[in-house]
């Protein structure tokens, strides 16, 4: 082995050597936002892997923001693949008109209701292995390492992206503190929108925090919420501003 000139060069070479081990069959889904895409290892979300998404706080509005974040991603996937998204829940409190405004009309979703987390995970796995869906979304309260590894394998086998929405169980215990085999882990929080010159609520903003990703570094970003086709945007005029919320960032994933 030739003498490595620097630490980063070694890392680059090692990365190239393992890049062939896992052949890519599915193109990554870019966010079409260079700010996010260039920081992701695959320059987008892996289309055959598991992604964990959790609200930053145990409040229902952060939970709604995380739901809309997933809805925006899956809306673009469903529109591109022209099939449906399987959305598995254990307690149905989604409001379908709201999902339609995030880009998922009723003809693009298939809801499944399991009795408990175990059923939700089993239904997700079936949907992932089938391979005809645009994406599979599951809402669980807890999923251990084994469950997430099974989902990751099923997503790989069916070439279907899986989104595991982890909801808060206890105050003070972040759902992302549980170990997971997910490729990326996201934490979403609501952020104040820009004040309009007239009375009214502006376009929603979120603090999107990538807590962990395979082969890349975590980051945090303030974005404008996804529109009716599921596309995020950057706040105008503050392109390179770091997220203001520091408390969540400091916690280890």
């Amino acid at each position: 082995m030739p003498a490595a000139t620097s630490h980063s060069e070694i890392v680059t070479r090692l990365r190239e050597s393992i890049a062939d081990v896992r052949p890519r069959q599915v193109a990554a889904l870019p966010f079409a936002l260079p700010e996010i895409d260039r920081r992701l290892a695959d320059h987008g979300l892996d289309g055959a892997a598991l992604h964990d998404i959790a609200p930053a706080a145990p409040s229902l509005s952060d939970d709604a923001a995380a739901t809309l974040f997933i809805a925006g991603i899956t809306a673009r996937l469903a529109a591109a693949a022209d099939t449906r998204v399987l959305w598995v829940v254990s307690r149905f409190d989604l409001y379908a008109p709201g999902l339609e405004q995030a880009g998922l009309p009723p003809g693009r979703i298939l809801f499944a209701e399991g009795r408990e987390d175990k059923d939700v995970l089993a239904l997700m796995e079936d949907g992932l292995r089938h391979g005809a869906l645009a994406a599979v979304v599951g809402e669980v309260r807890r999923a251990d390492m084994t469950a997430s590894r099974r989902l990751q394998l099923a997503a790989d086998a069916g070439s279907t992206p899986a989104f595991l929405s982890r909801r808060w169980r206890r105050q003070g215990v972040c759902p992302l503190s549980e170990l997971s085999a997910a490729t990326t882990r996201w934490r979403i929080a609501c952020a104040p929108s820009e004040r309009l010159p007239a009375p009214g609520v502006g376009r929603a903003r979120w603090t999107v925090e990538l807590v962990r990703q395979r082969g890349g570094n975590p980051f945090s970003l303030l974005v404008e919420a996804s529109d009716d086709t599921g596309r995020l945007a950057l706040p105008a005029g503050a392109q390179h501003r770091a997220a203001p919320a520091a408390g969540a960032t400091a916690r280890a994933a």
Binding site: D63, A64, T67, A71, D93, L94, Y95, G98, L99, Q101
Partner: peptide
């Protein structure tokens, strides 16, 4: 404009 989660 409709919310994404509706309270029961």
């Amino acid at each position: 404009k409709r919310p994404v989660r509706l309270l029961r």
